[in-house]
Design a binder for these strands. Structure first.
Length: 461
DNA sequence: GTAGGGTTAG
């Protein structure tokens, strides 16, 4: 990734004809790996400044290229600011720059500003294209306005504002799945199959993955078969979704068959493919099989990543083998991998399982010193440990309450796991204020499950 | 290589 960005930036230098020594730039990124983003942003800004004052003025295309690099680095607000400056310098924007700006607003969860720019696009006399509309549809989905996204999509179709392509269909299919309307998504897939814009592997993948996640693995396998029948080639993501789906329901044997199947078809399993298996074995308690899988992936020339090792750490912790888990962490560090919050949450969970609350508490503080931010899983693990001893010692119980309040203040909404561990407390303890607040909030969340779509309405009226 | 969408971790 780093290399890719560096290449992009240096390529921009090539376009601008700058003679700035590139080696030095690579060096500066290498020497300070902890702050590469800032360095890279600085580089981009410096380049922008230079371009702005160059004579003759670079074309809008060149600015678009540079800002695209920054947007890929997720510097959306900066991208928007730069376009503002470009316009102030009297350089006209084109449809590309408008689309990039709309995307920036959407990513910043400002979809309404995106629509404001749509008006500008019309005013400037460029007709918006399928990219413009896809971006806005995606923006609505990002803002949890899937219903509005579908409405816009329908309008585009019926009024023939633009010809939807695979990306646009894919965006809607994904949005529908995100809010649990898989049958609607399937309906749209069938609509594509019947029409002129045929679905490709990405739309099939979305459906297959969501069916698997929604416990409909067999249905997913049917779609998979149908897809192959239609001549659409499966890719590694298709297999990963199916293998994951099968593993989630204890169907590891079938998952292993798919692994063989994909290799026979010349689709190389990825680190993720193996990690899914490692994780599945760990959850089942067979860390030995998980370790064996790791060995196998290394033999195939794949390097286990943080997720792979974290799964192993979790596997050992689930069995209460914290010492073994710590050895895995050492193995990670030896390979220059940095344990993350998931890794540490597992370790905290492991300590709690062994009732080593002091170690758990200590680790919780230590990782924050390292700059890691605890997440809901971390809090749940710790709370579980503390509540557990809390029955015996008032001190731990008081401490758990403090963590609970801290968790809420950090903006984490309690989930089903929090709920279940609170339910195991005695009724009198549950009356304590932070706990009561959580229970009330959970009760409220359940009521907020409103229906978004009329299940009888089709896509095209 | 000027712009938009898809998958892993308790």
């Amino acid at each position: 990734m780093l290399k890719k960005i560096c290449t992009s930036v240096s390529k921009s230098y090539y376009y601008t004809g700058s003679t700035y020594p590139l080696n030095q730039r690579y060096l500066s990124v290498k020497i300070r790996p902890s702050t590469p983003t800032v360095t890279k942003l600085d580089e981009a800004l410096q380049l922008f400044d230079e371009m702005l004052h160059r004579q003759p003025r670079p074309s809008i295309t060149e600015f678009n290229r540079l800002i695209t690099v920054m947007v890929k680095m997720k510097h959306y607000s900066t991208g928007l600011l730069l376009y503002k400056q470009i316009n102030l310098m009297g350089i006209d924007s084109d449809l590309y720059s408008m689309n990039i700006s709309i995307n920036c607003h959407c990513q910043l969860n400002q979809v309404s500003y995106g629509f404001a720019l749509l008006a500008t696009v019309f005013k400037q006399g460029h007709p918006p294209d399928v990219v413009t509309y896809s971006t806005l549809i995606y923006g609505l989905i990002l803002a949890d306005q899937v219903f509005e996204a579908v409405e816009l999509f329908k309008k585009l179709l019926t009024e023939k504002f633009c010809e939807p392509n695979q990306v646009m269909y894919g965006t809607i299919i994904n949005g529908l799945c995100k809010v649990g309307h898989i049958s609607k998504a399937l309906e749209l897939l069938r609509f594509m199959e019947a029409g002129s814009c045929k679905p490709n592997v990405e739309q099939y993948n979305t459906i297959i993955d969501n069916l698997c996640k929604d416990k409909m693995v067999d249905h997913a396998l049917e779609i998979f078969a149908k897809m192959i029948e239609k001549g659409v080639l499966a890719d590694v993501i298709t297999y990963n979704s199916l293998i994951q789906g099968l593993c989630n329901f204890g169907r590891e044997t079938e998952a292993a068959k798919l692994l063989v199947d994909m290799e026979e078809k010349g689709i190389a399993p990825s680190v993720r493919t193996y990690t899914i298996l490692v994780n599945s074995f760990c959850k089942e308690g067979s860390v030995k099989d998980a370790e064996f899988t790791v060995q196998k992936m290394v033999q195939r020339g794949l390097d286990p990543d943080v997720v792979t090792y974290s799964a192993l750490v979790d596997g050992y912790c689930l069995r209460g083998e914290v010492d073994e888990a710590k050895k895995v962490v050492d193995r990670m560090v030896e390979r220059d991998l940095v344990p993350n919050i998931v890794t540490y949450s597992s370790l905290i969970n492991g300590y709690c399982k062994k009732k080593q609350i002091d170690e758990a508490r200590h680790l919780f503080l230590e990782i924050q010193d390292k700059g890691l931010i605890p997440n809901l899983i971390t809090y749940n693990s710790l709370l579980q440990g503390l509540f557990h001893t809390g029955f015996l010692k008032q001190k731990e119980f008081q401490e758990a309450k403090i963590f609970l309040e801290e968790m809420i203040n950090q903006g984490f909404s309690p989930d089903a796991n929090t709920f279940s561990l609170l339910l195991h407390l005695t009724p009198s303890i549950r009356q304590d204020s932070p706990i009561r607040t959580i229970l009330q909030r959970l009760a409220g969340d359940k009521r907020r499950d409103d229906k978004m779509f009329d299940s009888t309405s089709g896509f095209i009226s």
